[in-house]
């Protein structure tokens, strides 16, 4: 009896967990459709036009894939660079006093400072090619990776290090056995936040610096009043970001299923 009731309650719960978000989606889509269906606006498409547009871009004309690939080249290169520099600098700052005291005020500034106003300078330095976009992606991402790595290493219990030392561990041992495993959750969280920022950088570079890839596609559709395709492209970029970050979450759960401390957004 009790078991059956519990099972029924669990099933009911599962129904809520799936039904509620789907219901919100259906209501949202319905309202969007109703609000736009009679407007015949060239600028704001209906929900169904947007969905048809997304289908066309992805599977019929395949127009999205080329630009998406182009945009993602800058994303990948910039992100790899940001991970290398960010993790290195974060580890260094956590363990070397002198580096910490020199770099700390600049880290504060870079966390507070919007990156976008530096874009004209990047253009003057590197032109309008892929180098500029890579640098912008890097600038957007690396500081968040740095501070999370630093926080991760710092939060390692100093008692553990002390103990290892007293048992004769070298600095290399301390790094390999204690600091890096202890810092992994925070580093992974930093990599996830950094990836989100990198996607931001990719979009900003293409909308503010040079219209290539997705940015170009957006501007083209806007100029031609293909509003369904414009909204669909935005949706596609948003979906890419969501998928990438969901993958990072999975990676985090696999590699470091224990709790983490996170700095930044």
């Amino acid at each position: 009896m009790a078991v059956a009731a519990a099972r029924r309650r669990r099933q009911e719960e599962r129904l809520w967990a799936w039904g509620l978000p789907l219901g919100v989606f259906a209501v949202g889509a319905g309202l969007w459709e109703l609000a736009t269906i009679n407007s015949e606006s060239l600028i704001i498409p209906t929900f169904s036009q947007t969905m048809v547009g997304l289908y066309q871009l992805l599977f019929q004309t395949g127009q999205l894939w080329g630009p998406l690939l182009l945009s993602n080249q800058a994303l990948v290169l910039g992100y790899v660079l940001a991970v290398t520099v960010g993790v290195g600098l974060g580890l260094g700052m956590a363990r070397a006093r002198w580096l910490e005291s020199i770099a700390d005020p600049y880290v504060h500034m870079m966390l507070a400072m919007p990156t976008a106003p530096l874009i004209p300078l990047v253009m003057m330095a590197l032109g309008l090619g892929i180098e500029s976009r890579v640098l912008i992606v890097f600038l957007f991402a690396f500081i968040y990776i740095t501070v999370n790595t630093r926080a991760g290493v710092r939060n390692v219990d100093p008692g553990l290090i002390e103990m290892a030392r007293s048992f004769g561990a070298s600095e290399a041992d301390v790094w390999r056995r204690i600091l890096i495993p202890g810092a992994v959750p925070a580093i992974l969280a930093g990599l996830r936040i950094g990836l989100g920022r990198a996607v931001n950088g990719m979009v900003v570079a293409e909308l503010l610096l040079v219209a290539t890839g997705i940015g170009n596609l957006l501007l083209e559709f806007r100029a031609a009043f293909h509003s369904g395709l414009l909204f669909a492209t935005v949706l596609a970029v948003a979906l890419e970001a969501i998928v990438l970050l969901a993958l990072m979450r999975v990676l985090e759960d696999r590699l470091a299923p224990w709790a983490s401390s996170v700095v930044g957004d």
């Binding site: 704001i44 989100g196 948003a238 970050l245």
Partner: peptide, 23 residues
């Protein structure tokens, strides 16, 4: 009901929505 959408929107790049806001 809305947690999944809030989280998803937090993850998406913000400026890509600018053309939509502009519309």
């Amino acid at each position: 009901a809305i947690g999944i959408y809030v989280n998803a929107l937090l993850f998406t790049p913000s400026l890509v929505f600018a053309p939509i806001f502009f519309a």
